[in-house]
Design a protein around this nucleic acid. Structure first.
Lengths: 218, 218
DNA sequence: TCATTATACTGAACATTGTTCATTTATCAA
DNA sequence: TTGATAAATGAACAATGTTCAGTATAATGA
């Protein structure tokens, strides 16, 4: 009776155990030298057993990607819900920084989510939910007149491009002679955002001043 | 006598023939399903023959990367030398656009140069010469006072991050619902550059002050 | 307790991979 | 033609992903 339930649970546990081991091997040895047989040996099962949980190597890999996406998404949502009533532009900057930080702190997750080779004609990853968070943040900036009127969609995509650029480069090219990370990341984010802020015309000077003060205590 | 020369030449021709065929297979079938044997069959030689020209699959792959890098570099240099006496900021924008365009027009080259998986502990690719062009362009903008005084190195790296971001995303995620490409690319570039341009005097001071405060407590 | 049945797991097998190397073939100078 | 040098082969090896007929294990009903 509940034996079948116990079995299901055990199977699920085994599945996550496989995933954990697989991720470890992927990360440590690189995608190239990962092998199903190595994985089997690691979890102390026969190679065939893995195929009871995953259709093939590709699907196993895909599951890892999915996992990493979820983690990134959760990190972003935590941030979005964490500071709901703050200045939206500040929150946005914080969000962008958090995105980059997540990538740098969890490079293997970021690799899985965005960088690793992706076979053609594969169902698209779910970047969308994660992107929604960004779109929402930009939208609030426009609504509350911190940004001059801009196309929310275009702006969101452009911002994503910029922060993905710096994140992926820092991860993928660690030997490049980068300047100090924080400085570089800030410059990318400031460059990308500052041009969007309301202009300091004569009549808007006051608000602009206030806004700068707000920004400064990020 | 000159027979050995003829041989050398023939060998070189064969080498480039192999590279061409390899690139075609890589691009068409994906890295995963490329195989030395397929390549051998394609060029109508035995598998062993490839090893007369390349130590192994890795080195063959590396040669393709090198090739792609060179092409990108040449494209950038053409641009740099093409419009020497123009407004440097305009040239820079043009250069950034040209970078993105090169990537989009030659996605396989860009993939090889930047996106494809890179085995650890490999000698660093020569991004540096290509990056020099960018650094030079930014430097001219600062010299001729089109940009407010900025750290050339940091600015160059930040710009690279932004354009690499949009280039790689457009290449790697063709199914994402992007807005119009030109519009998006322009927005990324304008966002990144406009914040660097010289402003009216009092504006510049405000901005500089704010930035300093922001940076100081990170 | 024992037999039945559903499930988990194995391990041998297959085709394919990267790479090596002794052997054969082609090329050219003398 | 002969001898030497380089080019090319293809058989061999170990390792890969994946399948599947068979075996062990555990749960169920009597």
């Amino acid at each position: 009776m509940n034996a079948i339930l116990r079995r299901k649970q055990h199977k699920a546990e085994l599945r996550t155990q496989i995933l954990e081991a697989a991720r470890e091997i992927f990360v440590r040895d690189g995608y190239e030298s990962f092998s199903m047989r190595k994985l089997a040996q690691r979890i102390e099962y026969s190679p065939g057993s893995i195929y009871l949980h995953f259709k093939n190597k590709e699907e196993l890999f895909e599951s890892l990607v999915e996992e990493s996406f979820d983690r990134l998404l959760r990190a972003l949502n935590r941030l979005k819900n964490g500071h709901p009533q703050q200045d939206p532009a500040a929150t946005l900057k914080k969000g962008l920084r958090a995105y980059v930080d997540f990538g740098l702190r969890n490079p293997s997750d970021y690799r899985f989510a965005f960088l690793l080779r992706r076979p053609l004609h594969r169902r698209p990853y779910k970047v969308h939910p994660a992107f929604d968070v960004l779109r929402y943040m930009v939208g609030r900036c426009v609504e509350e007149k911190h940004f001059r009127t801009v196309d929310i969609e275009t702006t969101s995509q452009a911002l994503w491009a910029a922060i993905h650029g710096i994140t992926s480069l820092l991860i993928q090219r660690p030997t490049f002679p980068w300047v100090a990370r924080r400085k570089l990341i800030d410059q990318v984010i400031n460059n990308a955002i500052d041009g969007l802020m309301v202009r300091t015309d004569q009549e808007e000077e006051t608000r602009a001043g206030v806004q700068h003060v707000q920004l400064s205590h990020l």
